[in-house]
Amino acid sequence: MIKVAITGSTGFVGTNLQSYLYDTCNVESLSVRYVPNQKFNLETDVLIHLAGKAHDLKKVSKPKDYYESNFELTKQLFDSFLLSDASVFIFMSTVKAVADKVDGILTEDVIADPKTHYGIAKYKAEEYILQQKLPETKRVYILRPCMIHGPENKGNLNLLYKLVSKGVPWPLASYKNERSFLSIENLCFIIKTIIENKNVDSGIYNIADDEFISTNELIHIISSVTNKRNISIAIPKFVIGSFSKIGDLLRFPLNSETLQKLTENYKVSNQKIKKAIGIDKLPYSAQKGLEITIKSFTE
């Protein structure tokens, strides 16, 4: 049975991944935190590095925290991997290591231009990994997921769920956008396939569901799952824009940053990873994955 060590195993992705791999792999947790000049004694076949400092929505973290947790710690783990008998290294990066805004569809060929300390630190870790000489017996994968969701994940989807479930009208129907999501089921499927399929080439891979979903479609999905009437209002954009600027000053829930996240386009291509693992479609459609997540909020 393949031995798999996972850092960040107590997080949302880590707990789901452990359960997903339980029947086919010998999974263990690897507790790590950054300490200068440390080395790790890795006794595993596969190292999946999930640990790191997540994007700080409240903006209270220090830049140093991101570079130590997401860059320096990754360097230490990868150096230890190169010296070990482990054969596979999977680094969980992010699409934010490439772009905060996307024109068109984000592919692996886009030149990286991260804007936040979170994204910059992840990209620096990617660069370090790619600069090292890789022995022929080892495989390395840098995964760039978009917004991951699933049961027990209380992110932005939960905020929209609360809005719809309380019967509050959706006021942003005038905005037409498309964005990518990633269900935890599809992410776990891809990681398991990479571990088991030795023919998947090392490299960088964007990870996203197959279809793009608009925020208006998402509101419809939430309404359908919760059996709530879909009340959408197309308030003129200039009115919403003016109100969001007031929200910046008075710290309302609807401010410029929130408006951008709810209405922006962020489309991510997953064609490279699907071609690499030899499939046409992921196990769960974007809609099915979202329905599973939304349903978990009602239970």
Rank of each mutant, 00 (worst) to 15 (best):
I120E: 10
K122E: 11
P135G: 04
P135M: 08
A121P: 09
P151G: 07
M147H: 11
K138E: 02
Q131L: 06
A121V: 08
K115D: 11
L160M: 15
K115E: 15
A121N: 09
K133E: 15
H117M: 11
Y128W: 02
E136S: 15
L157F: 13
H149C: 06
E127R: 14
E127W: 08
P145S: 02
Y118S: 07
G119P: 05
T137V: 09
L130M: 13
I120V: 10
R144T: 03
P145A: 02
I129H: 03
I148E: 03
L157P: 04
Y161P: 08
P151H: 06
V110A: 08
P145G: 04
V140S: 01
K133F: 13
L160F: 13
Y161T: 07
I148K: 05
A112C: 14
R139F: 06
D113S: 15
V164M: 07
G150T: 10
L163T: 13
L163H: 14
N158R: 13
D113H: 14
E108P: 09
V110R: 13
S165T: 14
Y161V: 05
A112V: 06
K162C: 10
K133C: 04
K122W: 03
M147A: 13
K138S: 07
V140R: 02
Q132D: 08
D109W: 01
T107Q: 10
P151S: 04
G119M: 06
K154D: 14
M147L: 12
P114T: 03
N153I: 12
I129R: 00
Q131D: 14
I148M: 04
L130D: 10
H117K: 12
E136D: 15
L159G: 10
P135S: 09
Y161N: 07
E108W: 03
L159W: 11
E136A: 15
L159S: 12
V110Q: 04
P145E: 03
N156W: 03
L160I: 12
Y141C: 00
P114A: 04
I111G: 03
Y123F: 15
P145D: 03
K138P: 05
R144G: 04
N153Y: 13
N158P: 08
E136C: 11
A112D: 07
N153Q: 13
N158M: 12
V110F: 06
K115C: 09
G119W: 00
Q132T: 08
K154R: 13
V140L: 08
G150Y: 09
P135T: 06
P151E: 05
Y141H: 00
L157Y: 08
T116S: 12
N156P: 00
G119S: 07
N156L: 02
Q132V: 05
T137Q: 11
T137I: 12
G150Q: 09
T116D: 07
L157H: 06
A112W: 06
E136L: 14
Y128K: 04
E152L: 13
Q132K: 15
I120Y: 01
R144K: 09
T137D: 14
A121I: 10
A112F: 05
G155P: 05
Y118D: 10
Q132H: 05
I111W: 01
N153K: 13
L157V: 02
E136M: 12
E152G: 09
L130S: 11
L159K: 15
N156G: 12
K133W: 09
G150S: 08
K162H: 14
T107D: 07
I129S: 01
H149W: 03
